[in-house]
């Protein structure tokens, strides 16, 4: 792998930055949320659920902010000439950037998860370590996907401000914060079927749409690991929805579809495929433009 020295440099740059450690601290504060419904549903494994909460909202924002400058920043500062002077193809540069930044962010993220694990162990007792490890690994995969998206934007953007605006206005806001509202509005617009979030229609396309964002796919996969239900909502929201005589605006397959009637493409494993697509496709586009355009 010719790009490994570049990846090592990128990882070093990220891991020695204050931003990634600030993200790790915020992840712990954000993620550690003891809840009655979480304990009732998961017992001591609620600690593994904290990892999912930590991976929601702050993690995607932080990772996108830590990656959007990875190429465009070097382009505007002129240091990209040095990288282009190395015996690397532009694909190598993209791969080195993605691998390095992912490793550099994954370390502090793993430390944050470890702190959450210790806090959970002290507060709630022994949890399933395999489940916890699975949650951490799925979160690191999600970090890789976000790094891939951020790097792709950075490779295509001509100016830093364009990259910043794109990751925030085109990726974070619509795909992370407002995806549920956007996808339900889109579904209603196309099909003419209104969506009551408290009693959504048993529509395969609607539920697929909800999990097409990287954030939704991550939660489908992590809920799968936690065993709480098939949904793109957070695990505590899913558990609340599945409580008898409880009304909440979560989209949970088990609460909406009769047993055995959910389409195959709503299987949780498809969430992994969606994450893979988000890791590969934006980077593929970026490679196309980065290889053909003027990188300087």
């Amino acid at each position: 792998m010719r790009w490994s020295p570049l990846a090592r440099k990128e990882a070093r740059t990220v891991v020695t930055s204050k931003g990634v450690w600030l993200l790790a601290v915020l992840m712990v504060l954000w993620g550690y949320r003891p809840s009655y419904i979480g304990w009732d549903g998961l017992g001591a494994n609620i600690t593994a659920g904290y990892v999912q909460i930590a991976g929601t909202v702050l993690l995607p924002l932080g990772v996108l902010l830590l990656t959007y400058q990875s190429i465009v920043g070097e382009r505007t500062s002129g240091s990209v000439k040095f990288i282009l002077g190395l015996p690397l193809t532009r694909t190598d540069i993209l791969l080195g950037k993605v691998a390095g930044r992912t490793a550099g962010i994954a370390g502090p993220v793993a430390v944050a998860c470890l702190v959450l694990g210790i806090l959970g162990l002290v507060d709630h007792g022994v949890f399933n370590p395999i489940l916890f490890l699975g949650m951490v690994l799925s979160t690191i995969v999600y970090v890789g996907v976000l790094v891939s998206i951020g790097t792709a934007v950075s490779a295509v953007a001509k100016r830093t401000v364009t990259a910043a605006g794109t990751v925030f206005g085109v990726i974070f806001l619509p795909l992370v914060l407002f995806w549920t509202q956007i996808s339900t509005a889109l579904f209603t617009q196309v099909t003419g079927t209104p969506v009551n979030p408290y009693e959504p229609p048993a529509s395969g396309p609607l539920f697929l749409l909800l999990r097409l964002s990287p954030d939704g796919a991550y939660r489908v996969v992590s809920n799968w690991l936690l065993g709480v239900g098939n949904s793109a909502n957070t695990y505590s929201h899913v558990l609340t929805k599945l409580e008898p005589q409880t009304q909440t605006n979560a989209y949970v397959v088990e609460a909406t579809f009769a047993p055995g009637t959910a389409p195959l493409y709503l299987n949780e494993a498809v969430g992994l495929l969606i994450l893979l697509v988000w890791a590969v496709v934006p980077l593929g586009f970026a490679r196309y433009y980065f290889s053909r355009g003027d990188a300087v």
């Binding site: 601290v25 712990v28 504060l29 954000w30 550690y32 949320r33 003891p34 809840s35 009655y36 806090l119 507060d123």
Partner: peptide, 13 residues
């Protein structure tokens, strides 16, 4: 940090 951890969690009594 320790004192802030859990401040978003459910209230215990």
């Amino acid at each position: 940090m320790v004192s802030l951890t859990g401040c978003l969690g459910a209230t215990e009594y």
